[in-house]
Write a protein that binds this DNA or RNA. Structure first.
Length: 367
DNA sequence: CACGTGCGGGC
DNA sequence: CCCTGTCGCACGTG
């Protein structure tokens, strides 16, 4: 009873994207563990793993893992550790996204390495034609960039995304509407978009281990446990229902920059230079986006890893750098009066963003 | 509405 | 074992 609408949606997920790019550029990395890292700069190897190739993953290296753990795991191996080069990855991502966009009735970039394509019209609702098209997309990306990706085809975004994750790297998984329920039923609830570690734990404690369990569970109880929005969403998702459209994303709703401090401190003299840099970076971004901000937030992560935020909404939207810095300083004062802990990381966020009038820029979001 | 927190996705 | 960076959404509270 999944989709009366007869849609066909494709999800494209670039395989171990950052590490694959590095591999492609250095053929001598082939067969070795390649680990792309975000170095925080507080000690030699402080920081976290961003992406690892499949060789490293076989040893247990994972995204988000501390770099020192990964080094320990791979110390007997001839492994390569590299810093992230986001400018390079973004350039390659943009190139692939521009290519992908031409294959859909509509297109939605989800992140630097993921996108949805609505192809219903393009394939006339036919899953055989969709599978062929998905293959052509994979070929085109490979020819153009030398990179592989994993692709999922399904009757909606939810199913297409789960399908793309089913076989990777270099996978192609097609789930026609008639097979949605059998496809979902045996999968663990954690495979559902929106179910992470915390939510999965709650579900498993309720005896909901598979998506089938969730689909059969009374929706009232899900609403009671997870709230109206999420409860209804989980119920529908578990039954393979998702009517959300594939559509170009608009301008960002918030922008933030966060940094790790060289050492834990609560001294304004030590924090200020960092805040200035973060504000400057944000203002540059606001300018290229053609946006103005009205809400300013200071984000703090203290030595105990607790995250907090302080924010203030201005009377009028602005692009002014000094206003931003003054506001951030004032919020820092508020925070320091309330807490005695040293800070480990600090960040600045702007939100309530509005487009500046008379901007050509708007056109770049209209698809 | 403004403010603050929690969570997820997944590099 | 130690801990990156960025964004969106939901929701509780005042």
């Amino acid at each position: 009873m999944a989709q009366p609408s007869g849609r066909v949606v494709i999800h494209v997920d670039f395989d171990y994207f950052f590490a694959q790019i590095e591999e492609r550029e250095q053929p001598e990395y082939k067969g070795k563990s390649v680990v792309v890292c975000v170095y925080s700069g507080r000690t030699e190897d402080s920081g976290a793993v961003s992406t690892a190739n499949y060789v490293a993953r076989r040893f247990g290296v994972r995204s988000g893992m501390p770099i020192v753990w990964a080094k320990r795991i791979l110390k007997e191996e001839d492994a390569v550790f590299l810093p992230v080069n986001l400018v390079k990855y973004r350039e390659i991502s943009d190139e692939i996204m521009d290519l992908l966009r031409t294959y859909g009735d509509s297109f939605e970039q989800v992140s630097i390495d993921e996108a949805f394509l609505e192809v219903t019209k393009r394939v006339g609702g036919d899953y055989g034609a969709a599978e062929k098209l998905a293959g052509e997309i994979k070929d085109a990306i490979l020819r153009r960039t030398g990179l592989t990706c994993s692709v999922g085809v399904g009757p909606n975004k939810l199913i297409a995304k789960i399908a793309a994750n089913q076989v990777k790297p270099d996978g192609l998984t097609v789930v026609p509407s008639e097979t949605v329920n059998e496809f979902l039923r045996l999968l663990p609830v954690g495979r559902l978009y929106g179910v992470g570690r915390k939510t999965e734990k709650i579900m498993v404690e309720k005896g909901l281990k598979t998506i089938g369990d969730l689909a059969d569970h009374p929706v009232d109880d899900l609403v009671h446990t997870f709230g109206k929005t999420l409860g209804l969403y989980f119920h529908e998702a578990a039954n393979g229902i998702d009517e959300s459209e594939v559509q170009e994303r608009g301008p960002p709703k918030s922008l933030s920059r966060i940094a790790t401090l060289k050492k834990d401190t609560r001294e304004p003299e030590a924090l200020l230079p960092v805040l200035i840099e973060l504000c400057e970076a944000l203002i540059r971004r606001i300018e290229v986006e053609g946006l103005a901000y009205r809400t300013v937030s200071l984000v703090t992560i203290s030595e105990d890893m607790a995250m907090r935020s302080k924010s203030l909404t201005l009377e009028d939207a602005t692009t002014d750098k000094d206003v931003l810095l003054r506001t951030v300083k004032s919020l820092l004062g508020d925070y320091l009066r309330e807490s005695t802990l040293n800070l480990r990381r600090i960040g600045v966020r702007v939100s309530s963003l509005s487009p500046l009038a008379g901007q050509r820029r708007l056109s770049s979001y209209m698809g």
